[in-house]
Design a protein around this nucleic acid. Sequence first.
DNA 1: AATCTATACATCGTATTGCTATGTGTCAAG
DNA 2: CTTGACACATAGCAATACGATGTATAGATT
Lengths: 104, 104
Amino acid sequence: MRAEALKGHLDGLILATLANRPAHGYAIAQTLRERSDGAFDLPEGTLYPALHRLERAGLISSEWSTEAGRRRRTYSLTRSGGRALGERRHEWKLFATAVEAVLA
Amino acid sequence: MRAEALKGHLDGLILATLANRPAHGYAIAQTLRERSDGAFDLPEGTLYPALHRLERAGLISSEWSTEAGRRRRTYSLTRSGGRALGERRHEWKLFATAVEAVLA
DNA sequence: AATCTATACATCGTATTGCTATGTGTCAAG
DNA sequence: CTTGACACATAGCAATACGATGTATAGATT
């Protein structure tokens, strides 16, 4: 997968992952890898800045916790993030339809 | 349509447009707008640099001509560009499938 | 005991890329 | 003679994914 393909779509994927339940960064990466059947295997330098960006934007919120000696930052979708996810899903449909109309 | 959504996918769209027949920049923009039902309305600052980029990469080639006083640069898909288009189409399928598996 | 692997987070610097704004110039319509 | 469509070009900007690197704990392996 070329790096640029993901640009502009990562935020929606992260929000969608958090829509089911809150999760910490590492778990988000695992879920994304599983749900995408290995297609999305995010390096740390991609994931953590994206999470910080989403939190700055108010779409997710975080809380520190410690479990078995490991510190975790657990992220949850905010109400605003839920709305944003809806928009992203809608936008994706429009985008995918348009791309397929051209590529086909 | 958010600007970042297109990133990394524009090249494939341009290549696909040229797969039918050679065309000049302005015509490519028109075709893209029509085929995408208005979703892709490329500003010049997006289209022309992209064409130069594709030509530098050897995926398209160009020729100057003049028609009715207007100079045109007509672009054609190269053999290498044809192969690249195939790859992009394949990559798109993988990408779209993965995104839908996560967003759904 | 030492090393490796997985877990877990963080950030600096870089490359890529699409867009805005601006500039050049032709031609037809009003 | 001004507006709009046609036609191309580029400088500067903003956004973002990634590679590399660093910190730290826990369990398994050697």
